[in-house]
Amino acid sequence: MNKHTQKIRKYAGLFGAICGGLLISAPAISQRAVAQRPTSQINPCPSIYYEEPHNSRILVPQGCPPNALTRKLAAQGMLPPLTTPTPAPSQIPFSVGGEAPDSAPPGLNPCPRIFYEAPHNNQVLVPEGCPPNAFTQKLQAQGISPSPVVPARPPVTGIQPPLPEQQQPPSTQVALANGRVNIRLVNDSGAEVTYEVVGDTPARSLEGKSDTMLRNLNAPVTLTFFRKDGGLLQVTPQPSAETGMIEVRLNATTDVMQDKNTVRIQEDGTVFLN
């Protein structure tokens, strides 16, 4: 065998070894790639978080749009401020979820053990009738009921004045006469207005482009009014040169920032609008 033939066989053997190594390593590379590929796409924010009773009982994971309970606790300062916008219903992905305890089929445990295991133990409100878990006990200790009941609003018998902390800064000042004031109410709008001096008069109507005089009102005085057609009112109080007299003019407006429905005169004559 000459040297040329030996070289050819040597290179052929080397080439075969390289190819064989590639063929052996190829399945291993393929298997590693398959092992690194996610086996499934798990939705971290399933729609069950936004359905009752979970919507009002379960804290959604970080990064998910907030549900009702998450927003409520964030508003009460028990969670960090929310930065994720609430999605439209059409944006909430579909998933398979459980049923409310009241609609569960017979034999289904309404108080499963998962409610008492991490992380649910610290994130989920247990249903009524179940032993409280850590999260439920925490809220109860803070006076928050697991199933809060909103009391029925009492019937409205008249126009309710705003609370003092809801009032705007002082608008003007009127000189009272022995603690009394007369109010000339002028309706310059073209709409009928219902007005009331809280505690002094019942609700009354004032036609558009008309006025009325309210006399000898003891301060503090709360005058409330609203347009019957639901429109907005701009209010302008104008103290008179006459002691104990103020004129309140009502005009139509389309600017919601100018809309007012209350004039309050304090014991010292300070006038607030709200």
Rank of each mutant, 00 (worst) to 15 (best):
T5W: 10
K10T: 09
K10C: 13
G13A: 11
L14C: 08
F15E: 11
F15Y: 08
C19V: 14
L22G: 10
A26T: 15
A26Q: 12
A28V: 12
R32Q: 14
Q36W: 11
S40L: 07
S40I: 08
Q41I: 09
I42T: 03
P44K: 02
P44L: 00
C45H: 00
E52F: 09
E52T: 06
H54L: 09
N55E: 07
N55A: 08
L59K: 05
V60F: 04
P61A: 03
C64A: 02
P65S: 03
P66D: 05
A68V: 07
A68M: 07
A68K: 10
L69D: 02
T70S: 08
K72Q: 07
A74W: 05
A75H: 10
Q76G: 04
L79G: 09
P80C: 07
P81G: 01
L82Y: 11
L82G: 10
T84R: 08
T86L: 12
P87S: 04
S90V: 14
Q91L: 12
I92T: 07
S95Y: 04
D102E: 14
S103W: 10
A104Q: 06
P105Q: 04
P105A: 01
P106W: 00
G107F: 01
L108D: 08
P110S: 08
R113V: 12
E117M: 15
A118S: 15
A118P: 15
H120G: 05
N121I: 12
E128V: 12
E128P: 13
G129D: 10
C130N: 11
Q137F: 11
K138L: 13
L139P: 02
A141N: 09
Q142I: 05
G143A: 09
I144D: 02
S147H: 15
S147M: 15
V149E: 13
A152L: 13
A152M: 13
R153I: 13
P154G: 07
V156P: 14
P161G: 00
Q166E: 05
P170V: 04
T172F: 06
A175D: 12
N178F: 12
G179A: 01
V181Y: 02
N182I: 08
R184E: 12
R184L: 11
R184P: 08
L185F: 04
V186L: 11
G190C: 07
G190Q: 07
E192Q: 14
E192H: 13
E196C: 02
G199T: 09
D200F: 15
R204E: 15
R204S: 15
R204Y: 14
K209T: 14
S210P: 14
T212Q: 04
R215S: 07
N218K: 14
T222S: 13
T222V: 12
L223N: 00
F225M: 06
F226Q: 00
K228R: 14
K228W: 02
K228P: 09
K228V: 05
D229Y: 03
G231P: 03
L232T: 01
L232Y: 02
V235L: 06
Q238F: 10
P239F: 04
S240N: 03
A241P: 14
E242H: 13
V248H: 00
L250R: 04
N251W: 11
T254Y: 12
V256L: 14
V256S: 15
K260C: 06
T262Q: 09
R264L: 04
I265E: 03
E267S: 13
G269W: 00
N274Y: 06
